[in-house]
Design a binder for these strands. Structure first.
Lengths: 243, 243
DNA sequence: CGGGTTCTTGACACGGCTCAAGCGTAGTGG
DNA sequence: CCACTACGCTTGAGCCGTGTCAAGAACCCG
């Protein structure tokens, strides 16, 4: 096993003891299977805020599982502009965009101090061949990624600004809920710039919509933090059933 | 082997002789491997225009490879509205949206008379375990699906109407080119309704943009058919380098 | 404390949506 | 063969939502 020294205690955690194993590849695997998976995990390492996990064009060698923190994934256009394709949280798998082509088609950056587990794809491949249960979990995560992208397409294709922001808040709440955090009050590490980019609108528009939500008493906004006062109402807006 | 009778001659074609094997799962597989894959193919059957391949909520059992024709995939919202998530052509794999959840999250309909090959997922799974080369091809196709979705997100998130339509034309041209058809003149089986839905705009807007292209001498439009007169110019527009 | 980023707010313009009417083509039945 | 209908496409007018531009406030970090 290749473990790094000189890393915080958290980095020594094995899959079996990991806080997010239920959200990650181990998911429903038995103890023996989790151990096998644990053995192929390469480095478990921290990333400081702003550091890149991988960049566009770099060759694909590993998938990465987020242990702690938040990441932003984005594509870089030829003209230099960015399109944020998603935000990723603990338990999620990063790098799936490259398993087809062998080259990363997007770039991933840490939005805060994070830690990740590296899964050398060749080793994972070999394990997938032997372990049907792991294969199933892997397919599940791939499927979730596709479904997630589809819902982004839906958001960008059909919704107005207000509904988009409401949808984002609802999803963020459910992400935090799944990870055992408060639904009422959570961190939004991304800037309005990133948020607006992801939502297909401008910074100003995000700000204005958020201000409206504030005025209507649906949320309270603190720097990098959001307090949800009326989740039900926001869900209604997200569903398109209320203006 | 389970083959259907009572179907056109085309439906009897095996993977080894299939016109689109280079675009489909067999891709770079050796003859022996292709044969193994061919053996698990369930029914190879035709679908008439307007028929559904699968519907939202139906349980996932098989993937489908498109042999001939064009399909439209779309999500149905709770309020009954649709979001077209993509158009699919020969050689592409349908049903990947469900491998995670076991339930189809979108609906697929034939835009013309089509034929498809059914791949029972349980059988494919078993084969994936044994054949590293097939696994690689499968991952490639999954990766392509993710990359495709990402590019749709980019289109919806960053482009104006004119650029979106140009992008669609360029992609359609490359799809037809890969399949050995003319790049200059090809069928667009989808209605403006579907097109606009996919592109995140309205019917009227598609029509107007198309009219502009016509006036500028970039395309000629016949019913359900598009003749590209100046692909280079359209590519420039799609790249965002010209108004 | 200063300098850079990030956020807010306003005024204005414009792209695309909405609504509405008219046109062309294909299919159907007398 | 010609109404008649249905459907998809086109075109116009007007309006609304967002983008754009600009200035200032708030915040963060060294």
């Amino acid at each position: 096993m290749h473990q790094e020294e000189a890393t915080p205690a958290a980095c020594a955690v094995h899959c079996a003891d990991c806080a997010v194993r239920r959200l990650c590849l181990p998911m429903e695997l038995g103890t023996a299977d989790v151990d096998k998976l644990d053995h192929i995990v390469g480095r478990r390492f921290p990333l400081a805020q702003g550091e890149l996990l991988y960049r566009t064009g770099s060759p694909f060698a590993s998938l990465y599982a987020v242990r702690e923190g938040q990441f932003k994934a984005y594509r870089v256009n030829r003209d230099g502009s960015e399109q944020v394709t998603g935000f990723h949280f603990s338990g999620q798998l990063l790098g799936l965009d490259a398993i087809g082509s062998g080259v990363h088609s997007c770039e991933v950056v840490a939005l805060q101090d994070c830690s990740v587990c590296e899964l050398p794809f060749a080793d994972l491949e070999a394990l997938l061949a032997k372990m049907p249960a792991l294969r199933q979990q892997f397919h599940r995560m791939v499927g979730e990624e596709i479904a997630r992208m589809q819902s982004v397409v839906l958001l960008l294709g059909k919704m107005k600004a207000r509904q988009r922001l409401a949808t984002l808040i609802v999803r963020a709440a459910s992400v935090y809920e799944a990870r055992g955090y408060s639904i009422e009050k959570f961190q939004l590490r991304m800037t309005h710039e990133d948020l607006s980019n992801y939502l297909g609108m401008t910074r100003e528009c995000v700000s204005r919509q958020l201000t409206k939500f504030k005025q209507e008493g649906l949320v309270k906004v603190a720097p990098r933090e959001l307090e949800v006062l009326d989740l039900a109402a926001i869900k209604t807006i997200a569903a398109g059933k209320a203006p």
